[in-house]
Design a protein around this nucleic acid. Structure first.
Lengths: 192, 192
DNA sequence: GCGCACATGTAAATCGTTACATGATTCG
DNA sequence: CGAATCATGTAACGATTTACATGTGCGC
């Protein structure tokens, strides 16, 4: 359902399914993902509904491009969504489910190793976002608070990604310290 | 896919579909959600696969209970998952998609109002988790670092929920300040 | 000639949500 | 007697993933 609105938002500037897939991978990646096949199918449905319209045009390179754009009806749908309540919830963190059940391995060394690998993965994500932030900071003197309204809103979303991934890395580091303390205590008891 | 492993983890202690639904609502809520209908369907599939076994027994109250428990095969599957790589990614925040496209409304007052509502929703979630944390802190002198291994791992997951929702609320508050500054500047220009 | 970027789709299966459907027991 | 809790399921639909399938034009 949300994908519908995201496509409508993106297609305020006309583009192809291929363009949209690239946008998901580059821009929206930190808060939404979509497969190519899902994008094409949803575009078709939105056109059938009258929220999008498409025209086919030749490509400079490669097959014909099917360029979609939002219609007045689609714009109305988008505005309704934006005027409604913030949609909060549906948090799913697979790695937390893993952490929750890690006691099954009966080996706190294994838990520690898991958390260290997890810290690396999370730090990679953080570094990616910090790289994007640093890039904009360097290349646009208006970043982040003097950008135009559209880019300012985009910068707000990047900022949450940054704050959230930093919090996750801090949590992983704190958890590693806590696990190490438990292991030291246990080894202390074994030595005595 | 992950739901499979979560059910296997839960059913290391035997229980019914109803029990599992209650566990999702009470314990796992901050990192995973599942509908009752999805739980029953998945239990059936896992039993067909041989990862779970069930027996029917009378209930003290209400209809017969179908009690599921993990099998050796299921335990093996669970351990493989826990021994593998941390599963990171697939972050979906619908409200960030809304923030991203909020410029469509062409009204920064509307953006500000949206962010204020969002802050309230996020703060509610944070307060819920802080309530749970405070409850344990008060009722169990071993919380959080002297708990047994299973509860210690559970406490780690709650801690991420806490750190993450706090970061989200801080982001919302910071964003509100940034929006207010933009509005002040704009009004300043209009007044001059 | 090969690989890459461009470009569009279909098929099959599972996941996830919402709604429907039923019935017993307990407590006020 | 009515509401809440205990308890299990099905149906239908849409969302999502993974794999398959095809073809062009450019640069090395």
């Amino acid at each position: 359902m949300s994908l519908d609105y995201i496509l409508l938002g993106i297609l305020r500037k006309p583009g192809t399914g291929y363009d949209i897939k690239a946008a998901f991978d580059e821009v929206f990646n930190h808060f939404w993902q979509a497969q190519q096949s899902q994008i094409y199918r949803t575009l078709k449905r939105l056109e059938d509904e009258g929220s999008l319209a498409s025209r086919t045009e030749p490509s400079d390179r490669g097959p014909d491009r099917r360029v979609y754009a939002i219609t007045p009806r689609g714009r109305e749908r988008l505005r309704e969504w934006l005027s409604g309540e913030p949609v909060v919830g549906e948090d799913r963190h697979t790695f937390l489910a893993q952490v929750f059940f890690l006691d099954e391995l009966g080996d706190m060394e294994a838990s520690l190793a898991f958390m260290k690998r997890l810290r690396e993965r999370l730090a990679e994500r953080r570094d990616t976002l910090e790289g994007i932030d640093a890039y904009w900071r360097e290349h646009d003197p208006d970043y982040p608070d003097r950008l135009d309204d559209a880019d300012f809103h985009a910068a707000l979303t990047l900022d949450l990604g940054l704050m959230k991934t930093r919090a996750q890395v801090e949590w992983a580091e704190k958890s590693i310290r806590r696990l190490e303390e438990r292991l030291e205590k246990k080894n202390g008891r074994m030595a005595s």
